[in-house]
Design a protein around this nucleic acid. Structure first.
Lengths: 234, 234
DNA sequence: CCAAAAGTGTTCTCCATACACCCATGC
DNA sequence: GCATGGGTGTATGGAGAACACTTTTGG
């Protein structure tokens, strides 16, 4: 190979902050490490980048290996390069964040993880939960800030819900993520006026009160609107 | 060192997209490479990350070495990890973008750069300018999109102007970056109502018409407003 | 019939927009 | 005195915010 660069190189990893919504709470997926360093600690799923895969491929592979998750909304978050962030030596980590609907998902730990589990984000941040390995608490902070920012001007929140959802579920998603209450009538008016939801004939099942109408996010419609200058907002 | 990871590692670089405003045009700072590969081509300033420096330090160091620039607003942009983006072998690059006021700046190429020069962004994108090395055109695209997005909801535009500026300069900055015209009266009303500009006693010098009042961005005021929930917008 | 959530309209306020003329200065 | 940009106010429309009651359903 010509012009090869021969100086020492930092190691390169990816880490994934996977958010999910469960019981009206925002949760994050953690694994219990089965390898040193931080063996037995909880950490974000992630690992080393191979020479023949892109960063995103590495993130997806590690997620699959350590938690069993596949096919999710994934976006690059930030790259963390503090010199001492890994006791094994210089390691730079490209962080991704992902949104999934945990309902009905099977977690399946393997590889370097003893188990994978959902933790309420508030527990970790409030330190009533486990302390995370490496600088993963900091990565979580950055991811949370990004999620809060992004959810307001891009319709990514839908990734956290089932395909079919009620407007109340959607509203409560926003209330959870943004940590503030929204007015029911105004919220509905706003969302319906955007014309990016498909009103289904179906309704909620098995609830002990009037069953709510179900909706689906109309992605292709959204894309078309985008091209003509529409911007989703709150 | 315990637990050292011994698999092959991608090389790690940083690249910087430095934007400047000159003659009412948005420009980007490029260097002419003096090393293979792409010797003689124009490229973003950047280079390999050393083992004992953070990513931001690496970006600042490379900028200083290749262009002579120091002390600028710098922010991480995105990390590019396509497998084949560098002919020397697998190389991942963490891109940063920077904003400076080019007026009166001395560029001073050295190290791996033959020269450093400002190019109109439109030229590069319209391919009437030079083709850039590696995937640097793509990096420039991403940086431009980010700049356009960010300038609207964070007061970073001021970095592109001298410390003291007129409202017309500020407006024309926004018009240039956002590529659309703004109404003078509404623009002034909006900005002045934010209370983040300090009205100076001084005025423009040496203009062949009524001299405009100069303003300064009040950063500490802005920070205070931020904490109390204020958000800069457009 | 009671509990629990679904669903729905109107008013008011504020902010974004559109728009045109006089002012100060240098030459 | 004329060319050049600096500087200013007002009217209108539309969107966000505030706000409470009726409807449906299951138990």
């Amino acid at each position: 190979m010509p012009y090869t660069y021969e100086y020492p190189r930092p190691a390169l990893t990816v880490d994934c902050v996977v958010f999910g919504l469960e019981a009206g709470e925002l949760k994050v997926l953690l694994i219990e490490r089965d390898l040193e360093p931080f063996k037995g600690s909880w950490a974000l799923p992630g690992g080393f980048v191979n020479m023949d895969e892109t960063l995103e491929q590495a993130a997806l592979r590690e997620l699959q290996e350590e938690t069993g998750l596949r096919d999710l909304y994934l976006e690059q978050l930030y790259t963390f390069g503090q010199v001492d962030r890994d006791p094994r030596g210089r390691t730079v980590s490209v962080a991704y964040y992902a949104l999934v609907n945990p309902k009905g998902l099977m977690l399946h730990a393997s590889s370097d993880a003893r188990q994978a589990r959902w933790f309420p984000v508030s527990q970790i941040r409030g330190s009533s939960g486990p302390r995370l390995a490496f600088d993963h608490e900091k990565i979580l902070e950055v991811a949370l800030r990004r999620l809060r920012g992004k959810v307001r001007y891009e319709p990514i929140g839908f990734e956290l819900l089932p395909t079919k959802f009620t407007l109340t579920q959607l509203q409560s998603l926003y209330e959870t993520v943004l940590e503030r209450e929204l007015d029911k009538r105004n919220f509905r008016k706003k969302l319906l006026s955007m014309k990016i939801l498909i009103e289904l004939e179906e309704r909620q099942q098995d609830v002990a009160h009037r069953a709510a109408r179900l909706y689906r996010f109309d992605e292709s419609r959204y894309r078309r609107l985008m091209r003509s200058g529409f911007v989703f907002e709150l």
